[in-house]
Design a binder for these strands. Structure first.
Lengths: 248, 248
DNA sequence: ACTCGCCTTTGGTAAGACCACTTTACCTCT
DNA sequence: AGAGGTAAAGTGGTCTTACCAAAGGCGAGT
């Protein structure tokens, strides 16, 4: 074993501990370890990779500093929770978050965003909001409705408002949220009556934001999100009913 | 300990190698080492800090992963080019705007979070909130106040409340936000009078959350965040004044 | 004066031992 | 039978020692 290690050192010019970092990540991927799962003990892992424990520990330090793993004294080494890393597999979290939680967050975030946009939005940003609205509205009236495009334009309209709010952290957060929602489910605009309701909502939101009325903007957004929430729930229940009969 | 070193070493406690990371940065600051300068040899540094070489090397790995130092085989350890580190430092001192944005987001997020925790928090989560409070309160009354620990416990208390709110997206978002805030600036609890105000705020928040009063919880959190915001602004302006004369 | 090569310095790795914290299982006491 | 404490096993944390590998300096040879 010592000979093997020496050979590696000779062939690989770089530092072994750097190579190990990568190999540990490979182990995580290979074993399908999810955030929170425990890695093999240090001694075992060192033997598995054919390196000494100090070297392995240096690699673990590096991974820890990069937020990939979490080390708990007396307990073990764990794949870090993506809440703190977010470099590792973002997709996993998405499916675990319930629709209720996501819509709650939409409300928490988009209400103040609309309010800020109405009160502080600068001219250029508000112009972008208007353009987005016009595109969305036009797409709504197409005859064979393209649902994918519609969903994109819908999301774009909301994002333009958020951007007009002028808070970069808000923008970033809602971008992620929108992404999760759109990835997690199809558009809810197909729910009967939803398309028309949504169109009216968007109009009210636009007027309030461009008119510089924060309170009205918040009200309009709240109405809109609650409508979308109900539609999403309706679709979800429908899906579940369709899936139910297949249970033994 | 210099302000720079403190900024990096926060959150690191318990493990010797983490403590060492901070001490190494202290050495860099104390010796007025500039980017490109060489640190003392590993053996010497280990002896200086009273630790073994493996432990020292683990600390160096961590610093290397964070881009603070550069290690050259056979040559030495060097202070890294600040290309990667400068961004954080700038983000801290400049851009008052971003600080405003971050505190706005804290308010947007933590108010509903506290409300949800008060109305929906389950028993275990609320117990965790209480434990976090007790630790924080105890640390507040230590005689030689450990500011790093205090900030950690402060952040932990807030996070326990957020977790009690039971919204995973909220938890994740606030984790990131806390991280940015704590990395970007030192604790503001050192601002005169802030420590006592903060202690009272936390007590009110705790009572409201455990008492199941969402409205009171939101009010208490709002008061607290606005106090923290003012303290942060005060510190920021102070830093800028201090940094000004050193130009030239 | 230049060049080659050895020796010193400095980082890189290994092995083994022991310490400190966590968890679990078991045992005792109630 | 349940609750509590306690001991043991498992796992990370650290130290010591020794040796390997790369870089750089310095002297000997040309």
């Amino acid at each position: 074993m010592s000979a093997d290690a020496q050979m590696w050192t000779r062939l690989e010019r770089g530092m072994v501990s750097d190579r190990i970092s990568g190999q540990i990540l490979e182990v995580i991927a290979g074993e399908r370890l999810r955030p929170g799962d425990r890695l093999p003990p240090e001694r075992e892992l060192a033997a598995l990779l054919g390196v000494s424990r100090p070297s392995l520990r240096e690699a673990l330090r590096s991974l820890k500093a990069q937020g990939h793993v979490e080390v708990r004294h007396g307990s073990g080494v764990f794949v870090a929770d993506p809440a703190t890393t977010r470099t590792l597999r973002e997709a996993m979290v998405t499916e675990e978050m319930s629709l209720v939680e996501l819509f709650d967050m939409r409300e928490v975030l988009e209400l103040p965003a609309a309010g800020w946009a109405a009160s502080n939005g600068d001219k250029d940003k508000l112009a972008a909001v208007l353009r987005a609205y016009e595109q969305l509205d036009a797409a709504t009236r197409e005859d064979p409705v393209d649902w994918n495009t519609l969903q994109e334009l819908d999301a774009a309209f909301h994002m333009r408002i958020v951007e007009a709010a002028g808070n970069r952290f808000m923008t970033r957060t809602l971008t992620v949220l929108q992404e999760i929602l759109s990835r997690g489910m199809e558009t809810t605009l197909r729910v009967p009556g939803r398309l028309e309701r949504s169109r009216d909502d968007h109009r009210r939101i636009l007027d309030a934001v461009l008119g510089g009325d924060p309170a009205a903007a918040r009200r309009a957004v709240k109405t809109h999100i609650n409508g979308a929430r109900k539609a999403a729930m309706a679709r979800l229940h429908e899906d579940q009913r369709r899936a139910e009969p297949e249970q033994g």
